[in-house]
């Protein structure tokens, strides 16, 4: 039975719905992609066999939540980020190249990427140690230590910055002893490395802890019963299982250290060509109203961030269900 009047008197003929069935016919029969888009947006599928609309979603609120999410993300994230690339398109390629390859900027790349890489390595080794100790052993105050591991994540970066600077300066608690040894930490790349190690601390620990905790003891027992020493068991059985989560934690710590600003600007001393990190070069260009140069540099950092984000997503998917807690 048709849902519209079939007698074609003059007014009824005009009222006969002919547009919507035409559109549905077009969507159902032509163009697979238009069909898919319609299905997504409306939540209904259009099947050819019965000629009617088929509800595909039981739960309500798809359009509301997805629409709000997309609106929010577009307004706050996507459109401003597009602005970076729009602005940098105002420059010619030569100008962009000369900006991002200037000696001062190259020195800042070396410091930012180098110190972040080294800091992530320290966090890899010691993060594994801390995770092992927290999961496998019992000791007094373990819960406190476990809670404290997240401190760099919760502490504002400015507070971390001034605390670290005051400790490692010439008259600081640790700095004075190091000065006796002739080692200067504050206002050197060493200080930058230390600050970046601080802020990357929780990432490896929190990546490895769930995996280590879920590890089956059967594997280790089997290895022991077959005559393997603890070190062999660790090296050949446990470590390979931990590999994805270790890499994920490393990548997270590295990515965080790359973009870090607040903790580092205080201890680095910000000397051009020596202790300047790339975010600071961007900041300096902004203060000098060199918006185009700042944008070009920001483009480079954004590309690096996107690459790291893709790497981390890949690593997390590779690690399967072993997600980071942070």
């Amino acid at each position: 039975m048709r849902g519209y009047p079939t007698n074609l008197s003059s007014t009824n003929w005009l009222k006969k719905p002919r547009i919507k069935p035409l559109i549905h016919h077009f969507i159902a029969y032509n163009n697979y992609y238009i069909n898919r888009i319609y299905t997504i947006i409306s939540g209904r599928g259009l099947r050819i066999n019965k000629g009617g609309v088929v509800r595909r979603r039981v739960l309500p609120g798809f359009r509301l939540t997805l629409g709000f999410t997309m609106l929010y993300m577009s307004l706050l994230v996507l459109i401003p980020l597009m602005g970076v690339f729009v602005k940098s398109s105002e420059l010619t390629w030569d100008q962009v190249w000369s900006t991002v390859m200037a000696p001062r900027v190259m020195a800042s790349y070396r410091l930012s990427f180098g110190a972040s890489f080294l800091a992530a390595w320290v966090n890899l080794v010691f993060g594994l140690l801390v995770a092992w100790v927290l999961v496998r052993y019992e000791f007094a105050g373990k819960r406190l230590v476990d809670a404290l591991v997240d401190l760099p994540f919760a502490l504002p970066t400015a507070v971390a910055g001034i605390a670290l600077t005051s400790i490692y300066s010439e008259t600081g608690w640790i700095g004075q002893w190091l000065a006796l040894l002739g080692v200067q930490v504050a206002f050197t790349p060493l200080g930058v490395w230390l600050a970046l190690t601080f802020i990357g601390l929780p990432f490896v620990v929190r990546s490895v802890q769930p995996v280590l905790g879920d590890l089956d003891s059967e594997l280790e027992e089997a290895a022991a019963s077959l005559g393997s020493s603890r070190w062999q068991t660790f090296r050949r059985i446990i470590l390979p299982v931990l590999c994805p989560s270790l890499l994920t934690g490393f990548a997270l710590a590295f990515a965080r250290a790359l973009g870090e600003y607040g903790s580092v600007v205080f201890i680095s001393g910000n000397m051009p060509m020596r202790t300047e990190i790339t975010p600071l070069v961007i900041m300096t260009k902004l203060e000098q109203f060199d918006y185009a140069g700042a944008t070009a540099l920001a483009g480079v950092m954004l590309v690096a961030s996107f690459l790291m984000l893709l790497t981390i997503n890949f690593l997390q998917a590779w690690g399967g269900r072993y997600q980071t807690a942070a």
Binding site: V77, L81, V84, G259, Y261, L280, M301, L302, S305, N313
Partner: peptide, 30 residues
């Protein structure tokens, strides 16, 4: 819900987490 582009949306939501704070401010200045 399941829809194509779900993974990408998840990655997009993580984006501000991976962007340097200086750039986060820069985009609003621009």
């Amino acid at each position: 819900f399941d829809f194509p582009g779900k993974q990408m949306l998840g990655a997009l939501i993580d984006l501000p987490f991976s962007v340097s704070p200086v750039i986060s401010g820069l985009i609003y200045v621009l």
